[in-house]
Design a protein around this nucleic acid. Structure first.
Length: 152
DNA sequence: GCCAACGTTGGC
DNA sequence: GCCAACGTTGGC
């Protein structure tokens, strides 16, 4: 199957691209939205690439990471003291899933939301749609290439 | 801080 | 199954 592309959102204050660079890899846990869950569980493939997007104060694509595993249960759902606890999920019957992602690179210059809105060819991008707040979302191959072209 | 958009919950 | 109320996300 052809390589697919994604975009992962994160608040830099909770986990930034620099944190990922430092760690090398991380489990992309804490997603508690069914659509985003389904994307991670069912649609992604090992080896796919994803833009790393900072939401909040920065609002920009800041880097690239790679999906390095199949879907794995999100263990943070089982931690009763944690922020992402969900009593309905259990090791026997997991509800939430994640993937491990590996740091690939930082963009030399972040591409801000405002930049992206001005680039031809990205009009359909999920990120740029009104009211879009999915934290895991697809990026088309064409969109990926347009953005990579701009990031040089 | 404000508010639009969206998702979830729960009463009926 | 509908829908109002509520909570959250996230841009501005």
């Amino acid at each position: 199957m052809a390589k697919q592309y994604w975009l992962l959102k994160s608040e830099p204050s909770s986990y930034s691209i620099d944190d990922l660079k430092r760690d090398g890899k991380t489990e992309w846990t804490g997603v508690r939205n069914y659509q985003a869950r389904n994307t991670m569980r069912d649609s992604m493939s090992k080896g796919d690439l994803a833009f790393y997007y900072h939401s909040g104060e920065e609002t920009a694509i800041v880097g690239i990471c790679e999906i390095t595993t199949e879907a794995i249960p999100d263990k943070t759902a089982w931690d009763a003291k944690g922020h992402y606890f969900d009593a309905k999920s259990s090791p026997m019957n997991p509800i939430w899933f994640c993937r491990e992602v590996k740091f690939k690179q930082k963009l030399k210059t972040p591409l801000t939301l405002a930049d992206l809105r001005n680039i031809k060819g990205l009009e359909k991008m999920v990120l740029l749609q009104k009211g879009s707040r999915l934290s895991v979302q697809p990026v088309s191959e064409k969109e990926w290439e347009v953005i990579m072209g701009m990031a040089k």
